[in-house]
Simulated scan of single mutants.
Amino acid sequence: MNELLRFFIVTVMGVVIDLAIAFALHTGLGVPLWLAAAIGFTLAASANYVIHQTWSFQSGPRNLSARRAGLYALVALATLAVRVAIVVLLDRALAGAYPLAILIAGAGGSFFVNFALSKFVVFAAEPDTP
């Protein structure tokens, strides 16, 4: 199984948890949609780091690392910024209608940013040393 497929599987599981949390916070507790999206994303991203590090990117180092966790946190912030921007724009454009569809669109749009930065920055294979 290649890295993109493993990354996709982990990310889909994370997105389900992420969206469930965000949707419940927004519809059940009245949390603003952008904040609910940020909270759901943050909780799911924390779990995803561990799974990506130990399973998704097998060509790179497999042990957990504070340095890579920090890099992943920066990647998560960039991904979150893309996600929240999409959610805010769509929420305004659709006047608050279709919150679940808006959350899904934000997740989909941010997926590719997350994969590229994760693969080439956080979990890149370490160069061979002589």
Rank of each mutant, 00 (worst) to 15 (best):
S56D: 03
Y72D: 02
P61S: 14
L35R: 00
N2K: 10
Q58H: 14
G60D: 03
V10Q: 03
R83F: 06
T129K: 12
A38D: 12
T129R: 14
F8L: 14
N48D: 09
F111W: 07
F123V: 07
V121Q: 01
A22Q: 02
A36P: 10
L103Q: 10
G106L: 06
V75S: 04
A95I: 11
P32E: 11
L25S: 07
T27L: 15
V12G: 09
L25A: 09
G106V: 02
H26T: 12
V122H: 02
V16F: 10
A47M: 13
T129Y: 00
F115Q: 06
S46Q: 11
K119D: 07
L74R: 06
A125I: 06
A116Y: 12
V88M: 12
G40A: 04
V16A: 14
A69Q: 03
V10S: 08
A116D: 01
W34L: 10
V113E: 01
W34R: 07
F7S: 07
V16E: 09
L35Q: 11
T129L: 11
D128K: 11
A37W: 00
L74I: 08
Y98M: 15
L33I: 14
V87G: 06
F23I: 01
L64N: 04
K119W: 01
L77N: 07
A125Y: 01
L89F: 14
Y72S: 01
N63P: 11
V122P: 03
S65W: 00
I102F: 04
V75E: 01
F112I: 08
Q53A: 15
L74C: 11
S118L: 03
S56H: 03
R68W: 03
V75I: 10
A38S: 15
E126L: 12
I21N: 07
A78G: 14
